[in-house]
């Protein structure tokens, strides 16, 4: 296992200090070489448009896509990171800033069996919708019917933490709340 934190832009230092607090080794991923041999990648909060541009301009995007396809890599994406999960093939639709502008940013208790008393910090957060899946035809309602999708936490009945294959996508920021359990789960 080799853990990397994508450190192009955003809240990577917060993820790093969380991992340090857990006594976990990690590398900061800032170049193509750094992406070659990691097995777990944390994509932090930040601006998804900026991250995608930077990944593409340094040929990291193609490698990321290739390694996800070959199932060599697991990704934990928080906020902007979750948006990148959807671009990389996860079966979720994300409505960017779906909860509104900064004034609508909030923190709240989430509904989760796996993680009791989980507090989610949502900052200009994306809103998730799970894509309908051919296996679940007819897809009605489309919510919660994606192939192999597990909803690990919800807020007001909507999915905010979703796992599918090697993707784990969060609309909120455990790295801001100092919440370690999700990272433990991801690295198990």
């Amino acid at each position: 296992m080799k853990v990397g934190i994508l450190a192009l832009q955003g809240s990577f230092a917060e993820h790093a200090s969380l991992l340090r607090g857990m006594g976990r080794d990690f590398v900061l991923v800032r170049s193509l070489e750094d992406l070659q041999d990691i097995t777990h990648l944390i994509i932090p909060g930040g601006e998804s448009t900026t991250m995608v541009k930077l990944l593409k301009s340094f040929h990291m995007w193609e490698l990321l896509e290739r390694r996800m396809k070959k199932e060599e890599l697991r990704i934990l994406g928080t906020c902007a990171g979750a948006i990148l999960c959807s671009y990389l093939g996860m079966d979720i639709d994300v409505d960017r800033n779906g909860y509104g502008a900064q004034q609508e940013s909030f923190s709240a208790e989430l509904e989760s069996k796996q993680f009791p008393n989980l507090r989610g910090v949502f900052i200009r957060a994306p809103r998730f919708k799970i894509k309908s899946h051919p296996q679940n035809n007819p897809p009605s309602p489309p919510l919660f019917k994606g192939g192999g999708i597990k909803v690990l936490a919800m807020y007001k009945g909507e999915p905010v933490m979703v796992e599918q294959g090697n993707f784990l996508a969060l609309a909120f920021h455990p790295e801001i709340a100092g919440e370690k359990r999700i990272h433990e789960y991801f690295l198990k």
Partner: peptide, 10 residues
């Protein structure tokens, strides 16, 4: 301050 953190490196 969380929103400011999301802007870091930018």
């Amino acid at each position: 301050s969380g929103l400011a953190r999301m802007l870091k490196g930018g």
